[in-house]
Design a protein around this nucleic acid. Sequence first.
DNA 1: ACCAAACTATACCTTAATGGTGCACTTTGT
DNA 2: ACAAAGTGCACCATTAAGGTATAGTTTGGT
Lengths: 138, 138
Amino acid sequence: MKITQESDYALRVIAYLSKAEYGDIIEAQRIAETQAIPLRFLLKLLRKLHHADLLKSYRGSHGGFALNRLPGEISLKDVIEAIEGPIYVNPCLGNIQFCNLVTDKTECQVHLALSQIQERFLRDLARVTFADLIKYES
Amino acid sequence: MKITQESDYALRVIAYLSKAEYGDIIEAQRIAETQAIPLRFLLKLLRKLHHADLLKSYRGSHGGFALNRLPGEISLKDVIEAIEGPIYVNPCLGNIQFCNLVTDKTECQVHLALSQIQERFLRDLARVTFADLIKYES
DNA sequence: ACCAAACTATACCTTAATGGTGCACTTTGT
DNA sequence: ACAAAGTGCACCATTAAGGTATAGTTTGGT
């Protein structure tokens, strides 16, 4: 019941980029060094964020990455889901086929209780943006 | 970002026992069959619930398991934590040593934001008991 | 006293997910 | 043309999760 280390990295990457001037292009090398993330692993992670349209990527020399939206337009949920895919507290919440209930799967009480809690959790994650996150920093 | 299948099994086991008469002793075999859980795996899981004082266990012939508290006194959180240990959305919330932040770990904004969301999530999980869960069942 | 039916404990195995690397390739500025 | 960036895919190593095996203990019934 926790986010992966890769997601944690990703959150810090976006936080880091959020502190730069909007539009600034920063190369992976520099992110890797300041955030202490293995470069190759970081590149893969950055690609996921790019595919999720959270980042712009620039190839060739003087290439790098920049935010594709303002920090206030990117939530914790956006980043975690870009890395891990949709968040489901219980597998059966994604696909009822995974429900372990033997009998009538449409009336699974475990399923129902967890789904309500999950909804609130996702709303909370979606409500916090990187503008919120960085506004207390020096 | 999801609970394990073992936790899911455990929730269904407690839900199942909650529907029995309070004090009834039910053998693992029967739980395994009705809930479609491999017996050996179930026994291990039941022991965890026993060690967490959620269940009473009876050995010898006519042995089995029974709830050690009323359904209303057992929450989703109790069960999940009995199986998985304390829930931390981000590893660094359990032990700051795991914080990936390079510089001042006491001022990690990712950490702070997630910890507030986690608190609410845990409160939600702790608020739902198995009395709530089973009251809509036939 | 003995046996069978239950749980206990620990160790082990198998598979999948996670974290991380390597290599060949493409793009772009100078 | 070439070096400095990112791309894409394949691969490897470690860990965690799900599940199984084996030997032992407790208890009720004969």
